[in-house]
């Protein structure tokens, strides 16, 4: 008799909703960027605007739906990219070891010592913002954690008897690395990736809150937050809706990642 997994179910609901927002924004929120300066700010519950409008008369709810894309796509790219970078470099460091390991570990240590958001700010400011520049900078800054995790997992696998058996069969290093070690490290890397999506989502939103990342006028939760600050007296929805969306999405992804990680650890322990 298996206990129903409550955690992933609870987390899956908001994630599914956000996914629908991302994919269906153009149908769900066709008027997201339609301005109506004459209406200006209206409070929640105004006719036709569930959560009111901002100072440009844009519908907060539609704007938030349209903002889902830039809020989650960048973080997903960051997490996947840094996972691949981490797996590649971590596997090389962990399995080949020696000088390569030393260099890669020092590189990871260096990056880890840097304050992520601050560096992203500086770089984004230097090369004049841009969404994808921010994504790239964050990707590089996120990778040391993945390198470390992959390296540790690879080293844990490398001394296991099944790897020794593979060595006794005289299989090539490449084959041992990619056919034997990698599939057993992948679950841990995937769980870490999910957690990174959550971190990156918060980091990206923070950056666009500070004015970096997406260009002006583009729907984005972080930017909505910073724009909405001035309107809080007239329309609390302008701040609360994107704010809640950020919190709920990040928390749901985090929950999912934690749950997966726990499961993989349990499975690992049973072996």
């Amino acid at each position: 008799m298996k206990r129903l997994p409550i955690t992933p179910l609870v987390a899956a609901v908001p994630l599914a909703v956000v996914a629908v927002f991302v994919v269906g924004a153009q149908w769900l929120a066709p008027d997201a960027t339609t301005q109506d300066i004459y209406t200006g700010v209206t409070p929640p519950g105004t006719d036709g605007h569930l959560f009111g409008t901002d100072q440009l008369g844009r519908d907060i709810w539609q704007l938030s739906i349209a903002g889902a894309g830039s809020a989650v796509i960048g973080p997903i790219v960051i997490a996947i990219g840094s996972m691949m970078l981490g797996l590649l470099l971590g596997t090389l460091a962990g399995y080949i070891g020696g000088g390569l390991d030393l260099v890669l570990s020092k590189y990871a240590d260096l990056l880890l010592a840097l304050p992520t958001t601050l560096i992203a700010l500086v770089v984004a400011g230097l090369v004049d913002g841009g969404y994808w520049v921010t994504v790239l900078v964050l990707l590089v800054l996120f990778s040391p954690t993945d390198i470390r995790i992959a390296r540790g997992a690879v080293m844990a696998q490398a001394t296991r008897p099944y790897i020794e058996s593979a060595r006794v069969l005289q299989l090539s290093r490449t084959r041992i690395m990619f056919r034997h070690i990698l599939p057993n490290v992948l679950p841990i890397a995937l769980a870490t990736m999910l957690l990174n999506v959550a971190f990156a989502l918060v980091a990206m939103s923070a950056l666009s809150f500070l004015g970096f990342g997406v260009g002006p006028g583009t729907p984005d939760w972080g930017r909505q937050l910073s724009d909405g600050r001035d309107l809080i007296g007239q329309n609390w929805g302008a701040v609360v809706v994107p704010g809640l969306l950020i919190i709920i999405t990040a928390a749901a992804i985090n929950l999912m990642g934690d749950w997966l990680q726990e499961r993989f650890e349990q499975r690992g322990a049973q072996r």
Binding site: P161, Y162, S165, A166, R179, H180, P183, N184
Partner: peptide
């Protein structure tokens, strides 16, 4: 230990 001698993913 046969369990750890076989690749669990294969």
């Amino acid at each position: 230990d046969p369990t750890s001698a076989l690749n669990p993913a294969m």
